[in-house]
Design a protein around this nucleic acid. Structure first.
Lengths: 345, 345
DNA sequence: CTGTTAGCGCTTTCAG
DNA sequence: CTGAAAGCGCTAACAG
């Protein structure tokens, strides 16, 4: 920067200003500086700027896995918003493990992010305490924790499945099962199962049936395996909710393979409104949770929180609930009863 | 850090050493330091360290979109490897736009990454020159550029489709079409189309037919729309190659919807070996390019290149070709001819 | 094995 | 609008 300053015949400070504020410098000076930057191929060093200004321009985002379009949509939403203020996202993946999350948080904090966004509301004790004492805005997403660390942008995973169950009931299904991954650190999956079980009781259904196959992330293949186990376990089952659209797709494809009609023999619903759910055949009934919207809301809130922090007046904890929607598609369409198609008396 | 040093009764330098080398400090001193770190809740500031040591510990990775499991697999592979040396990945998405790529590169370079990994071998002139003069290792992936900037870890997109075409021919298909997105910045998609057209000529097929629908990224829905257009345009078509598995899935699902048997009426093949391709029904014939392996190879090479750079002896440009494999699945299975099922004479 | 001295490249702060 | 001085928090380099 000193070189640029010399070449433009100004001080380094003026160069610094020209490169950021644009306003605070005479147009001619500015032009001379930009010319010098061009000539020298100078590239600003933000890491030095960060040290000096104590503003790194980073926000850390922790997600279970990049390879889940719901989470990458959320990251996408966050990035879009943060980009508008020139802030960058530092992504970390926890691989659905809380221990791993703790490690990633520890590493991230060494980079001095100006805010940190985590997925879910369940963390190790040490992770939680690191977040609490980090002195930066914290947002938990994809959940509505009872005792949040800071801000929250999410929804109740249990409630989404309760709603879905209510709709299945409304459509006439009574024997409904649930397909999930093996229990572990995937609390969101677990919450959805809880929603299922609560709904079974609340709706007075005769029995519940949960099939757990595969360690999270639950894949298409797990869904295929699970549906076979389900039919063996409970031949009378009429419908099944899968913990995600991917496993729902697997279940449906396995049904095709075995000649079981969907939804005739078995209705199938998923969660997450993945792209394939809308376009596969039959299209999959699911719960949309607005993954992108979660990201955008989170980004917007983070920007406010950071601005408040910089101004020395931390934002009081906010709690934003993202609406979810049950989307009815072909995979649960009730075949018309003979009576229904008969002419009215 | 000064506080920690004081509390442990040592100098800041010793604290710094204890926190990194671990070896270069007496065990007791080390323990005292860690105790002080614990007591004070001290967290190392890597951004200061980076400025001082000129080692940021960052590698930038640019991909078209997070929301494509092929690219996120590659990022995953890169991260895994870089993690082993404590390096972090800074992800940037270009949204399949070269202009956007240029901007992202400019921003990334201000963070002083120790290496940069880009997707594809086609860039704007300014992007290319920024990469060339950045003074850090550059790796281009997912392609085999004729005039690479630095290192290359990739494969020929055209060759993958040529191979797939040869196999379709071998299986007895003669009237083969190609479904792609509208031409634009997606050079990998364009290269695949080129491979298709070269194969049509090389194999002496009577005609080619390319259906272009939708701006990249090509989605499931685009595939569905395209297949309808295809059947209208060329009713005699026997098989179609889709630019990605996602559009292949869309095409197949649309065929189901319209009662066109796959592969009986139309055989469908894709590209990328996405998870759904393996598990949907019918399973999709595709080309696997080892997305994760590309990432791992890239990560390994980047680590070597950075080590060499730090040692002052830049690694001569390497060119690593990742093998691809045509995977035959149900979506192109030839129905047995009557003659073939007849008893041998 | 440990300490001292400088200084990384920028921005804050305060004067002009 | 511009400049000078000081220092962000750490580590390289050298000395003990």
């Amino acid at each position: 920067m000193a070189d640029v300053a010399r070449r433009a015949g100004v001080s380094a400070m003026t160069v610094s200003r020209a490169l950021k504020d644009k306003s605070a410098v005479t147009p001619e000076t500015r032009d001379r500086i930009f010319q010098a930057v061009q000539d020298l191929g100078y590239v600003l060093d933000m890491s030095a700027g960060a040290l000096s200004s104590k503003k790194t321009g980073f926000v850390s985002v922790l997600i279970p896995s990049l390879n889940n379009s719901n989470f990458s949509d959320t990251v996408q939403g966050i990035s879009e918003i943060l980009d508008t203020e020139g802030m960058q996202v530092l992504i970390g993946t926890t691989n659905y493990s809380r221990v791993r999350e703790e490690q990633v948080i520890a590493t991230m904090l060494q980079r001095r992010p100006e805010g940190i966004i985590v997925t879910g509301g369940t963390h190790t004790a040490r992770a939680r305490s690191m977040l609490e004492t980090a002195g930066i805005p914290v947002i938990e997403t994809w959940d509505l924790p009872v005792a949040p660390i800071g801000h929250v942008v999410g929804f109740s995973n249990a409630a989404t499945i309760e709603d879905l169950m209510a709709r299945l009931m409304f459509w006439g299904y009574r024997r409904v099962a649930f397909i999930e991954g093996e229990p572990g650190d995937d609390t969101r999956g677990h919450d959805r199962r809880t929603g299922y079980e609560r709904a079974v009781r609340a709706l007075g259904l005769e029995r519940s049936c949960v099939i757990s196959v595969g360690r999270p992330p639950v894949t298409v293949e797990h869904g295929a395996q699970a549906v076979v186990r389900l039919i063996e376990t409970w031949p009378e089952v009429e419908a099944v909710i899968c913990v995600s659209d991917l496993s729902a797709l697997g279940a449906i494809m396995e049904c095709h393979r075995r000649g079981w009609d969907v939804p005739g023999r078995l209705a199938v619903a998923g969660f997450g409104d993945f792209q394939v759910a809308r376009h596969c055949w039959p299209s999959i009934t699911t719960v949309s949770v607005g993954s992108l919207a979660i990201g955008q809301e989170t980004g917007t809130l983070m920007l406010q929180a950071i601005a408040a922090m910089r101004a020395g007046t931390p934002l009081p904890p906010r709690r934003i609930t993202i609406p979810h929607t049950v989307i009815e598609r072909d995979s649960t369409a009730r075949q018309p009863h003979p009576a229904e198609t008969a002419p009215a008396p």
